[in-house]
Amino acid sequence: MSEPKKNTKMTVFKTDRHEDLAAMFFVTIAVVSVLVYMAYIVPSITLKAPMDGKVVAISVQPEAQVKKGDLLYSMEIKQKKYVHDTLEEKIVTKDFHAKTSGKILSISAKPGDVVKKDKNEILVLEHEKGVLP
């Protein structure tokens, strides 16, 4: 009679504890890769519309140096908010600030443009090396 093999082989790893540790290692690699890539490898970032709306003002010029927190542009957006469990919609103007210091390479949007979230480009920013854009 053949001796049955031990059937504790569950994943590509020996046990769930190994799998948990491997997942932690994998996440560390993934996160560090993203951070290093964004901070050191990507030369510039394209800022796309963060939400649907209308561009009302562009506060920077091409080739301008900006610091983290500087106003970049303003958009008119439809803000949805629950007040006492009732959905209220109103048009508000929202300012968008630089998340990192750097130089404006180009500006694609102009005041009056209607933009779609993640579709339309607003501007291209060359960020400082070593900081997260």
Partner: peptide
């Protein structure tokens, strides 16, 4: 092992203990 393959929440020794128990 396959039958419980969709279960990803188990941690540490849970599944290993169970598979040994089933064996």
């Amino acid at each position: 092992n396959d039958y419980t393959g969709h279960d990803w929440l188990s941690g540490s020794g849970s599944r290993a203990d169970f598979l040994e128990y089933a064996r």
